[in-house]
């Protein structure tokens, strides 16, 4: 999976999660910029990514992601 594939998957997941087809994530998107992407839906998002890709984030990672690009990078590293 390329980083762009992962980003596209993230967009799909967040659209499904928030029932909002207008969302398109970029590498620079921050969570606060996406309506309704609150802390509960952040955990739900992380859980959905873990389920879809069979990966597992460390607690330290989850607290430190600055933007979507950081999550993509970490996901990509775990998939390698």
């Amino acid at each position: 999976m390329t980083d762009q594939d992962i980003l596209a998957l993230f967009t799909k997941i967040i659209r499904d999660l928030l029932s909002d087809e207008s969302i398109t994530l970029t590498m620079r998107t921050k969570r606060e910029e996406v309506p309704n992407w609150d802390s509960m839906n952040y955990i739900n998002f992380i859980a959905a990514v873990e389920i879809e890709l069979g990966v597992k984030f460390r607690v330290a990672d989850i607290e430190s992601f600055e933007d979507v690009g950081a999550i993509v990078a970490q996901t990509s590293a775990m998939l390698r």
Partner: peptide
């Protein structure tokens, strides 16, 4: 455990 520390979920999302 991660979900517990992050969000105090006792039942994991899956």
């Amino acid at each position: 455990r991660g979900r517990w520390f992050q969000a105090k979920m006792e039942v994991s999302p899956p």
